[in-house]
Amino acid sequence: MSSKLIEVNGLTKVFRVGSLFSRVRLTAVDNVSFDIKDADIYTLAGESGSGKTTVSRIILGLLEASEGEILYKGKNIMNIKSEREKKEFRKDVQAIFQNPFETFNPLRTVENYLYETQKNFLGVDASDSIDGIEQALTAVGLTLDDVKEKYPSEFSGGQLQRISIARALITQPSLLIADEPVSMVDASLRMSIVNLFKELKDRYGLSVLYITHDLATAYYVSDKIAIMFRGNIVEKGSVEKVLDSPKHPYTKMLKESIAQPDPRDKWDSRVDLHLTEREEYMLKGCKFAGRCPHVMERCRTEEIPDFDIDGVTVKCLLYQ
């Protein structure tokens, strides 16, 4: 039984939006809990506005949570005050971002980021040793000569995403947070990035928090998945269980809506489209109640608890 690497408990983030006079509280992340084990690829999936990116930013310390705790190796990282501990955490938890063309400053050569990461976290100057950098680049299938003295505009999206991963690997992290890492990468290169996560997991025991809207790559690469909808995790469990036989009506609809790349598997039914995002956030009870085919009166009024059913956790009264 592997131990928990990171444990997120009751994470909540409230944004205040609108003008000075008509402030509205928007709960972008609502009481979210999940945990990632060592050498695990965990997917946080959902549509835009589901709160998945907000969760990742809070874990990385780029945003402050309104409520809840994040335990990393048993220690609550929300209470970290000292610079030294912050650095220690950042060394252990690294991230890559959605748009590879924006990941690096277009006016600086990319190698700079590799040298800086090594210097700032490991205290090793590039003039003394570049072994760590070369190792990290080798892990993603590149060499230092490939990136030397080059600017971001000289690479393709796939290459930049590899360099971005290499940079994150230099500190030898335990957890890599990948926010939509392939959505801007070309289809023909996409799988090479996704395969990289599997390799890194197998070879170095790296855990990955994979944040995506793409259920197909999530199914391919991950061990566990949590489906987010309007700030809630509506269903979580092993990826096969959740996606092969979805339980929550939202997960079912999401899976059916995917355009499968197979002409023999075209959509045969029709969809109804929904209220605007803001209205759904404002719903009490289940946020999916407005579109759910199985909606009951209680769904609209009650706080919906989580139910465990054959190894999957579902936020739906149908499974009470």
């Binding site: 924006e102 990941t103 400053n105 700079n112």
Partner: peptide, 21 residues
């Protein structure tokens, strides 16, 4: 912009961020 986050994750301090990025 995203590279601000990359710079922070590379351990750059605030003054480095401003001057280099």
């Amino acid at each position: 912009r995203e590279f601000t986050n990359t710079a922070m994750l590379s351990g750059q301090k605030v003054y480095e961020l401003i001057f280099k990025e």
